[in-house]
Amino acid sequence: MEFEFSGEIISWRGPAPYLFVPLPADVAADLREVASALTYGWGVIPVAARIGGTDWTTSLFPKDGGYLLGVKVAVQRAEGVGEGDRVQVRLVAGDLGASPA
């Protein structure tokens, strides 16, 4: 499944501060419909993602009925983005061999 959306980078403090892009409600709803086929446990869904020219693999984390896309520090630095910035995201869910390009 492929998605493209924009979102604001937020900070969510668990054991340490991390930056995430919350998925829009419509994208999260589409993913929930097929999550059981994509997840590898705990509702976490593997994805390949792209912001700007930077690709990475990570997982979507379920939170409050939606999903959060973790934005790695390497991506933040490469794209010059941080908390509060609005970014365009391309996402391929479930197939880490796929490219979000």
Rank of each mutant, 00 (worst) to 15 (best):
Leu19Ser: 11
Asp26Lys: 03
Leu38Phe: 06
Gly14Ser: 14
Pro46Lys: 02
Ala29Pro: 07
Tyr40Cys: 00
Pro15Asn: 13
Ile45Arg: 02
Ile10Ser: 07
Val27Tyr: 09
Ala25Phe: 06
Ser11Arg: 12
Gly43Ala: 09
Arg13Glu: 14
Ala16Asp: 04
Ala49Pro: 08
Tyr18Thr: 08
Val27Leu: 01
Ala28Thr: 02
Ala35Glu: 06
Asp26Ile: 02
Pro46Thr: 11
Leu38Gly: 02
Ile9Met: 05
Phe20Lys: 02
Pro17Gly: 03
Arg32Ser: 14
Glu33Leu: 15
Val27Cys: 07
Pro46Asn: 03
Trp12Cys: 09
Ser11Cys: 06
Gly43Cys: 04
Asp30Glu: 15
Arg32Pro: 02
Ala37Ile: 00
Ala25Leu: 10
Trp42Ile: 06
Leu31Ile: 11
Gly43Met: 12
Pro17Gln: 07
Val47His: 10
Glu33Gln: 13
Thr39Gly: 01
Ala48Phe: 11
Ala25Gln: 15
Leu23Val: 09
Ala16Asn: 13
Ala48Cys: 12
Trp42Asp: 14
Arg32Lys: 09
Ile45Phe: 03
Val21Cys: 04
Gly43Tyr: 15
Ala28His: 08
Ile45His: 04
Thr39Tyr: 00
Ala49Thr: 10
Trp42Glu: 09
Pro24Val: 11
Pro17Glu: 14
Ser11Phe: 06
Glu33Asp: 07
Tyr18Ser: 12
Ile9Arg: 06
Gly43Gln: 08
Ser36Thr: 03
Leu19Lys: 15
Phe20Met: 10
Ser36Gly: 13
Ala25Ile: 12
Glu33Lys: 14
Val44Glu: 03
Trp12Glu: 11
Arg32Val: 08
Asp26Pro: 04
Leu23Trp: 06
Phe20Trp: 10
Pro24Ala: 11
Gly14Trp: 12
Gly14Gln: 12
Pro17Cys: 08
Val34Lys: 13
Ala16Ser: 08
Trp12Met: 10
Ala28Glu: 11
Ala16Trp: 12
Ser11Thr: 12
Glu8Trp: 00
Pro24Ser: 15
Ala35Asn: 01
Gly43Trp: 01
Phe20Arg: 05
Ile10Tyr: 05
Val21Phe: 00
Pro22Tyr: 02
Gly43Ser: 07
Gly41Glu: 01
Ala16Gly: 00
Ala35Ser: 10
Glu8Lys: 15
Ala25Met: 04
Ala48Gly: 09
Thr39Lys: 09
Ala28Val: 08
Tyr40Gly: 07
Val27Ala: 05
Ser11Ala: 06
Arg13Ser: 05
Ala29Ser: 14
Ala37Val: 06
Tyr40Pro: 00
Thr39Leu: 02
Val47Phe: 06
Pro22Thr: 04
Glu8Pro: 00
Pro24Met: 09
Glu8Met: 09
Val21Gln: 05
Arg13Pro: 05
Ala35Leu: 01
Phe20Val: 11
Glu8Val: 11
Thr39Arg: 08
